[in-house]
Design a protein around this nucleic acid. Structure first.
Lengths: 191, 191
DNA sequence: AAGTAACCATACCGGTCGGTATACTCGCAG
DNA sequence: CTGCGAGTATACCGACCGGTATGGTTACTT
């Protein structure tokens, strides 16, 4: 008797894939489990057999989203192989712009935070971890390039990066990422 | 026959006040009109007589929130009367920290954007305008102090400010505002 | 041959959602 | 005294919500 079901089956993967699109595009609360099951060509029964609850599916969606973004970023870095510390940081912004590709929905984690709030939802910890990992990525890129005080500078650059996302999506400022890149140039001290 | 009712009545004001707390604290989708009516000591009938629909009430909530924040900020400025351009900008961050006062729910506009998405909701324009006004505030504070290129610098500082909100609330980074103030000092060029 | 994991199909549950309907009271202005 | 705007109280509506129940079909394993 499997107390915690294994979601890694063909139907389970399809459900997670469909949920990934629907949750992000329409919001977590706005998408019902019936719709996800239908859209995935399966049934609610199977969804609950694989994931146990909607909350667990949401948590799986967030984890998967984080994982997919990191894979995307790694591949972007491999394809564009920026060399200087500054270029490597700026490449993260380029990758993020490409990652969204026109969607105005913004950061999935910020959106999820708005819907999950201060509850004890299993997905909440994923959000916090995701932002900490994003910050750590900036710090690591700077440290690899031998930048002094990478910790402090990385935190500042990450903050600019997060602000650009908000300004682009909520504020509709289409040049937010250009501004962010310029701001980062200033903070890194390029002249 | 009033096609668009006037919400500015005792019951209407009470409903808007209660909705302001509930929508922010629990999220727009998570709060039903029945709850708002109950909590306001009135009835759903009155709510619909005043506002016409939940969407309209949400839009009114967002407008009111924007207005209250600007009043709060003005009063904060009057009470603390910072003088230098830098101090005036930093005071906005101080005010924002005081404005939240411990809540981890984050920016009401960012949260609303997550729930309203790309629909044609009447509240969406309020969000975009709100962020533009926030940016304009930074620009104005710098321009008043005779800073050169206030437009560019103001946009950058505003971006840092928005990033700090995200990192504090979603990332749980409790020192986000301290980092933002330091980053702003660097960008303004204080030494 | 028996067991089991994975899956599909359908029906059902209690609860909540946004929104409407009906009918009544009160205070005030013409 | 009549009309009306503002308000209360309650009942109702169809739709949808997350979650469960029942039952049957494959296919692979032991």
């Amino acid at each position: 008797m499997a107390r915690t079901a294994n979601p890694d089956t063909p139907a389970g993967r399809k459900i997670l894939e469909v949920a990934g699109v629907l949750f992000y595009e329409r919001g977590i609360g706005a998408v019902g489990v019936d719709l996800i099951a239908d859209e995935a060509g399966t049934t609610k029964k199977t969804l609950y057999d694989r994931f146990g609850s909607k909350d667990a599916l949401v948590a799986a969606y967030l984890k998967r989203r984080e994982q997919r973004w990191e894979e995307f970023l790694d591949e972007w870095m491999r394809a564009h192989h920026p060399e200087s510390g500054l270029d490597r940081v700026l490449a993260v912004l380029d990758a993020e712009e490409a990652w969204w590709a026109g969607s105005r929905r913004g950061c999935a984690f910020v959106n999820a935070h708005a819907e999950l709030g201060e509850s004890d939802h299993p997905g909440r910890e994923v959000l916090r971890e995701g932002k900490l990992r994003a910050r750590a990525k900036f710090v690591a890129l700077l440290a690899e390039s031998g930048v002094a005080d990478a910790e402090t500078l990385g935190a500042r650059l990450h903050m600019v990066y997060e602000g650009a996302m908000v300004n682009l999506t909520v504020g509709g400022m289409s040049d937010a990422f250009d501004e962010a890149r310029e701001t980062i140039r200033v903070l890194v001290g390029e002249r």
